[in-house]
């Protein structure tokens, strides 16, 4: 293992784009996304894996980017909030969050959206309980979670072609 503080090049796929960047051995994926790649949509609320604000998808799995070293995810496909929309077309989750007021201050929103995306990728017809369970690692202080849970349900229905 290289000494702490030493750097190396890491290759990642971020939102479908191949990226190559120099990182320190002790740099987290969160830091690399925000500070090296300037993808600041992903947020930090604790940097200890406790709040969920930094949630991203790593090879399709819901992960806390503050708990992963960038060197651990070499070669992985990362999806962040910036990769949800297709150009100007918002993802149904984003549309539903906006319409239902599920994003107030918006600081937890990126993490919430990515946790919800991971859920809907696996389960296209989640119950309310399953939605709450999937979001239980994401802290929101504005909404009381109600509009967020509703928005995920609405987005799921739209993705199934209903409503």
């Amino acid at each position: 293992m290289s000494p702490p503080g030493s750097s190396r090049v890491v290759r990642l796929s971020v939102n479908g784009e191949p990226r190559e960047t120099i990182v320190a051995e002790n740099e987290t994926l969160l830091e690399v996304l925000r500070e090296r790649l300037r993808l600041t949509g992903t947020k930090h609320g604790c940097e200890l894996g406790e709040c969920g604000a930094c949630t991203v998808l790593v090879d399709g799995d819901q992960k806390l980017s503050c708990l992963l070293l960038a060197t651990e995810v070499e070669g992985a496909a990362i999806v962040t909030v910036e990769g949800l929309a297709s150009g100007p077309d918002l993802h149904p989750l984003q549309d539903a969050f906006m319409e239902l007021g599920a994003s107030q201050c918006g600081y937890c929103t990126a993490g919430m959206l990515m946790s919800a995306k991971a859920l809907l990728d696996e389960n296209d017809e989640p119950t309310e309980g399953e939605i709450r369970d999937a979001l239980s690692g994401n802290v929101c202080r504005c909404t009381g979670y109600a509009s967020i849970v509703d928005a995920v349900g609405v987005a799921a229905a739209r993705l199934r072609g209903e409503r």
Binding site: T42, V81, F97, M98, G101, S103, G106, T109, L113
Partner: peptide, 11 residues
Amino acid sequence: PRVDGVQKVTG
């Protein structure tokens, strides 16, 4: 929706 809605859901 709020006036800053799109920015908030796209990061």
